[in-house]
């Protein structure tokens, strides 16, 4: 495991190498060499099983983090190759030629996060949300609650009470509970 990680560090100047547990490690490589690293792992290091592709929205950093998770069926180890891409006009080289199922993931990511994979088959077709007009639905800034409140019709008549506030209204409405201040500059 460590041997592979050292090699990735040397070959693709991987950063942020973290062994999560025995047999599972994550590395971050530059966007330009991510697919090279994945291909190298597949063809030379025996990481032939493509487990999954995923994306995490680090909205506070303005980045999407793509993950290619590969499994080596002989050594029973996993390497997750991560790469960060910009959140504005996100695009990534397509990897559909590497494994047969990759285009499906890329099609989903295009729809769910708005990441483009130019050249990937059927990448512009809707995957699960046909006719979607809002921002890509898996981005962090898409507010599911707000959306559902706007889209659906909650049956009226519900109200709730916070125990502490309710007790205050009932038991001690006049007791001051915060220190009042006079302005300093008066």
């Amino acid at each position: 495991m460590n041997e592979i990680l050292d090699k990735i560090k040397q070959k693709y100047s991987a950063e942020d190498v973290k062994v999560q547990r025995t047999g599972l490690a994550f590395v971050t490589v530059n966007k330009d060499v991510a697919l090279d690293a994945v291909t190298w792992l597949r063809d030379y290091e025996g990481y032939s099983h493509f487990v999954m592709m995923s994306c995490v929205d680090w909205i506070e950093d303005g980045k999407f983090q793509l993950l290619y998770l590969l499994h080596n069926p002989v050594t029973k180890t996993d390497v997750g190759v991560k790469t960060l891409i910009n959140r504005d006009n996100p695009a990534m080289t397509s990897g559909h030629h590497l494994w047969k199922q990759v285009w499906t993931y890329q099609r989903e990511l295009k729809e769910a996060f708005g990441i483009d994979f130019p050249g990937s088959p059927r990448v512009d077709e809707n995957f699960v949300v046909e006719g979607w007009v809002d921002i890509p639905h898996m981005r962090r800034d898409f507010n599911t609650k707000e959306y559902s409140e706007e889209t659906y019709f909650p049956r009226p008549g519900r109200e709730t009470h916070d125990p502490a506030t309710y007790m205050r209204e009932q038991l001690y409405p006049n007791q001051p509970v915060t220190a009042k201040r006079k302005d300093n500059d008066k």
Binding site: E159, T160, H161, P163, A164, Y166, M167, Q170, L171
Partner: peptide
Amino acid sequence: AIDLVPVDGIETKDGDSGL
């Protein structure tokens, strides 16, 4: 799915919000 509501016959008192 859960709301806290006042209930007739249950008073708000020390140690019981009455909800």
